Simulated scan of single mutants.
Amino acid sequence: MGGEPTSFLFGYVVVRGELVVGGGVVVGGRVVVGSGVVVGGGVVVGDDVVVGRDVVVGGDVVVGGGVVLGGDVVVGGDVVVGGSVVVGGDVVVGDDVVVSGGVVVGGDVVVGGGVVFGGGVVVGGDIVVGGDVVVGGDVVVDGSVVVVGDVVVGGSVVVGGDVVVGGDVVVGGGVVVGGDVVVGGDVVIGGGVVNKSGTCQLRKGTCG
Rank of each mutant, 00 (worst) to 15 (best):
G23P: 08
V121D: 01
G130C: 06
G154N: 05
T206A: 14
D78P: 02
V164T: 15
V129Y: 09
V73S: 01
G24N: 09
G191P: 13
P5H: 03
R203Q: 08
G22M: 14
G205V: 09
F117E: 00
V33E: 04
D132M: 03
V86Q: 00
V49F: 10
V175C: 05
S35A: 13
G106Q: 07
G64Q: 10
D126W: 13
V188F: 12
S144V: 08
G174W: 15
V139T: 12
G106K: 06
D54T: 05
G41L: 03
D132G: 01
V171R: 00
F10Y: 12
V176L: 15
V80D: 13
V99Q: 02
G41F: 02
V99I: 06
G174N: 12
R53A: 05
V104P: 02
G29H: 14
G40D: 02
V87E: 00
G94P: 02
V97D: 05
V159D: 08
V134C: 08
V13K: 00
V45K: 04
L69T: 02
V14H: 03
G40S: 02
G77D: 13
G106E: 10
G59T: 05
V21Q: 01
V63T: 05
V169F: 13
D60K: 00
V43E: 02
V169W: 15
V170H: 10
C200Y: 15
G23V: 06
D138P: 07
R53S: 12
S7T: 06
